[in-house]
Design a protein around this nucleic acid. Structure first.
Length: 259
DNA sequence: AACTGGCTCAACCGCACCTGT
DNA sequence: GACAGGTGCGGTTGAGCCAGT
């Protein structure tokens, strides 16, 4: 849903807030317009000045946030693609909660969006696995189960000629990372060795866990995520059968929920 | 139809860092 | 060096939406 629609309904309460000083809460279309117009003319930065000169009764911080997360051109909203999910998992395993740094590798995505993604999806999975999101146990699950499954998934989608909206997403380029949009010959090509140096080189554990994990243990499973009773001896294992569907974050399906 | 609980995401808050004086 | 103002970042919150009952 366009947030403006949501916000517009709340705009009627703004008068009392304006009387009491700096405005807070959802932005109105008028405020968006004022801010965008100002920044188009004067450029980004100097947010406090922008707030004053644009006639906005907002803090500079609020203006900055609104611009970066919503008004800025090329901001991509909507579902995180599989490639983006993969990249987020990889980068988070390397950098931790450095959302802004991770966001820099995902053009058009904001740190706020990635942070929200992590909290709502990944942390939820950790919670359901009854393990700390920063624990070795969870990281191993991510590295040796979810990421490989994500790669398989990306590969599978790239091989099927129909229903692959993800393929239209841009290739991500940076000095360090170049995640190909279409899968190459092997899924491992999708992992930047600089990001997860231990994945490609840790065949023994990876292979053994792979055998345990089977399919359906990854971050795209939300409808029926791996439950805690699959946890054994401090690591994650999963049932042999593929009872957990890949529907957790089905693109083109999930994204239709919010239109 | 009404209610409820879970989910999403925009926006706020507090803190840390940077820069100019 | 001390201080103040501005900016950036990560954590958190709460309103609104939606699906299930």
């Amino acid at each position: 849903m366009d947030p403006r629609v949501r916000e517009h309904g709340l705009a009627s309460t703004e008068t009392e807030e304006q009387d009491m000083g700096t405005r807070k809460g959802p932005w109105t279309i008028e405020e968006d317009s004022l801010l965008a117009h100002y920044i188009n003319n004067h450029g980004e930065g100097h947010w406090n000045t922008a707030a004053r000169c644009a006639g906005l009764n907002r803090t500079g911080k609020s203006c900055r946030l609104r611009w970066l997360n919503y008004l800025r051109p090329n901001v991509r909203r909507g579902n995180i693609t599989l490639q983006e999910q993969l990249l987020i998992l990889q980068l988070h395993s390397r950098w931790g909660n450095r959302w802004s740094k991770i966001a820099q590798q995902l053009p058009g995505r904001t740190d706020n969006e990635i942070k929200n993604y992590w909290r709502t999806r990944v942390q939820k999975q950790a919670k359901q696995l009854k393990c700390e999101v920063n624990s070795k146990q969870f990281r191993d699950t991510m590295r040796y189960a979810w990421i490989p499954r994500l790669i398989e998934r990306i590969q599978a989608e790239s091989e099927s000629p129909v229903d692959q909206p993800i393929i239209s997403t841009p290739t991500y380029h940076s000095s360090q990372i170049d995640i190909p949009v279409a899968a190459s010959e092997s899924g491992s090509d999708l992992i930047d060795p600089n990001i997860l140096p231990d994945i490609s080189g840790s065949c023994t554990f990876s292979d053994s866990l792979d055998a345990q994990v089977s399919s359906g243990s990854d971050l795209t499973c939300s409808q029926n995520p791996p439950s805690s009773h699959y946890m054994q001896n401090g690591s994650c294992s999963y049932p042999e059968n593929d009872s957990v569907p890949w529907g957790w974050y089905e693109h083109g399906v999930d994204m239709q929920r919010r239109g």
